[in-house]
Design a binder for these strands. Structure first.
Lengths: 198, 198
DNA sequence: ACACGGTGGCTAACGGTGTTAGCCGACCCG
DNA sequence: CGGGTCGGCTAACACCGTTAGCCACCGTGT
């Protein structure tokens, strides 16, 4: 079984609908935007209700007039980030041909995570409160891996492997001096091999 | 290149020395033991200086007579856990033959993480403070992946993939209803393939 | 024109966290 | 018997998320 192909030898077309996020009130949108900036530029420890208030010219308790709590705020960030990464990866798969999908997909996944490490960590680590998220957004973000592999469990394994590889990179867990490009090449080769053969 | 084999067709012998943890004072050992129990049985949120003091019949500030701080305590836990998992995985590789190493190794890794989810999370997530750890313990714990693959970067990729797959499992991140055994089978197959061929 | 109600600020406060300072009793050793 | 170290204690600090309650403003309906 090779890479799944739609008409013209292309990878599978998307099947999950692109989710539409509920548009937040202007003030909420502003808060979420500031929160994202704080998270990305100052790190997770700085993502504090008081810090957000400070940047918004407001006291921390006033934030609760707009948001139910910090976890809901984080859910908004996760929501938006999932759509963003879903768009990115779908676009990559759209543009790739059967021979290069896998490498392109992994490269894009890695690049995005490295460009937004704190956001990536927020999205992917710890238990996920699905009830706080927009329905379908998770499927949308993960689907490119299915489009690239054509088999749901291989897709999950690929996604999980990519996640593991990138999160360890972000956290600096590899042995010092490692050439991470080679690690990624080894990972890509492992998942490409079944495609070459058979 | 197939699975690396030592004399008799076995996987590579260990090369990193098994690290010897500095024996803590009795009281420190007691604290670390209680901390581990709290972490595993009550979760990371309960791993609190005050909670530890309570269980030890002591006030939280008194803990600082024995430990430099919470991060050092966590480092002790990580240290011990790394040795433990290293022993486990080395033992698996010792007992396995070339055909089954990979599957056995991944199965053992997964089983250990699922048996101690909170400890596993502590060990593997977030930035690693190498200066707080016993030298060599990281190498020791990771080496079984090298022994099973014979190539350092393939070993890193395999470890990373295993980590990603298991951490998403622990955090309940896969789509509801997924048969995780199949995901693991897909992962194992991806890394076994290069061994079969060539 | 006036009262009303919602919106979105505010302060004060609570219970929780890790951590520091400083006190002091007990114990061991010279 | 004196002194030092060890290991407990209380008080306190700064910070966290969060709640309660107050109030000014502003748009709307009568």
């Amino acid at each position: 079984m090779g890479t799944p192909q739609g008409p013209g030898g292309l990878p599978l077309a998307p099947v999950a609908p692109r989710p539409e996020l509920a548009p937040p009130s202007p003030r909420v949108g502003e808060i979420v935007a500031v929160a994202r900036e704080v998270l990305e530029k100052e790190g997770p420890a700085a993502l504090t209700m008081r810090r957000l208030g400070e940047l918004l010219g407001i006291r921390a308790p006033s934030l609760y007039k707009h948001l139910a709590g910090k976890t809901q705020l984080e859910a908004r960030l996760v929501d938006a980030a999932l759509v963003e990464i879903g768009d990115l990866l779908h676009g990559v798969v759209d543009r790739a041909d059967a021979a290069s999908v896998l490498g392109d997909l992994l490269a894009a996944y890695r690049a995005h995570a490295r460009a937004h490490p704190n956001l990536y960590r927020l999205v992917t680590s710890g238990p996920l409160r699905r009830d706080q998220l927009t329905a379908g957004v998770e499927d949308w973000a993960g689907e490119p891996f299915y489009r690239a592999t054509g088999e749901p469990y291989l897709a999950q394994a690929l996604w999980a492997a990519a996640h593991g590889t990138v999160i360890l990179e972000l956290d600096g867990r590899y042995l010092p001096g490692s050439d991470l490009d080679r690690t990624w090449a080894a990972l890509t080769a492992a998942f490409r091999r079944p495609v070459d053969g058979a």
